[in-house]
Amino acid sequence: MAFAQGAFGKLYKGTYKGEDVAIKLLERPENDPERAQLMEQQFAQEVMMLANLKHRNIVKFIGACRKPVVWCIVTEYAKGGSLRQFLMKRQNRSVPLKLAVKQALDVARGMVYVHGLGLIHRDLKSDNLLIFSDKSIKIADFGVARIEVQTEGMTPETGTYRWMAPEMIQHRPYNQKVDVYSFGIVLWELITGMLPFQNMTAVQAAFAVVNKGVRPVIPSDCLPVLSEIMTRCWDANPNVRPPFTEVVRMLENAEMEIMTTVRKARFRCCISQPMTTD
């Protein structure tokens, strides 16, 4: 039985050499040559990308099959499903802060690797971030990823509006910083547990982002360092957005700050307990 569905096919759980795997079965539209060509292009691209990406925060490629009837891509199986599914099960409750920062670091470290290879993911969102049994996150779905080139030739409107950088929505030239913008939205999701722009349609969200400079509302009790990361990541000016190497450093600082705060709280708790004698 399929456990997820995308634009061109469905995801199934299977077994390969005794291990659980995810099988993406692609349905080639027979009566739409243009759509069929796009699917073929994305299939070839995703297989090529995944076969060459090897990082602990990138979903592991196992194999692919391209026969006239069935096209499929096989990857490791994520027991926890996607980050979006995980957040929906929590019913808009935020992820514990320590875990949220750990998972954000997983995504940022994976993206340091992706960008280091000169690639752009172009569809970084919670649906494409998979949670494994140790609660770590791996990046998936490289069907629309591209090698960074002179962006006049890049496809506009690739990705999903709620996570899409304004320059992509406006069909302007873009670079790797579109992924940084999307990451800022994902970080907000982790911190709040909510769907971005949940009171708007995707098209309304895109209009608000581009024409009104609207961004998700950062909680008032958010750690300043996390607030700064989000604000800089989703800045309208791509040059203001930090590279993922800097995002990782900032998140590591946030992680240290959280650990220090927890230790201090535990210490205060210990010394406030009255001493007892026999």
Rank of each mutant, 00 (worst) to 15 (best):
A4M: 01
A236P: 02
P33M: 04
C222P: 02
G143F: 00
V214W: 02
N175M: 06
V112Q: 01
M88P: 00
P238A: 11
R56L: 13
E46D: 10
V210T: 15
F3I: 09
V69I: 12
K24P: 03
F61V: 10
R35W: 01
N211M: 15
K135Q: 15
L223V: 08
M230K: 00
F132G: 01
M259W: 09
A236C: 10
G213E: 04
I120A: 02
R84W: 14
G193V: 00
V74Q: 07
E30V: 09
P33N: 00
M168W: 09
R146T: 15
C269I: 11
E157R: 15
R266S: 10
E255Y: 09
P68A: 04
L25A: 09
G110L: 01
T201K: 06
A104S: 06
F267N: 06
L187A: 00
M194N: 13
K54P: 06
I139W: 11
I169T: 09
P196H: 03
S82G: 00
L119T: 02
P33T: 03
E189T: 05
E148M: 15
M1R: 14
I185A: 00
I218Q: 05
P224Q: 07
T277K: 12
L251C: 05
L25S: 11
L50W: 07
E257F: 12
V247C: 00
W71C: 13
E246V: 09
E40F: 06
F267G: 02
G63F: 07
E246R: 10
M111N: 03
K60I: 12
L97S: 05
L124F: 05
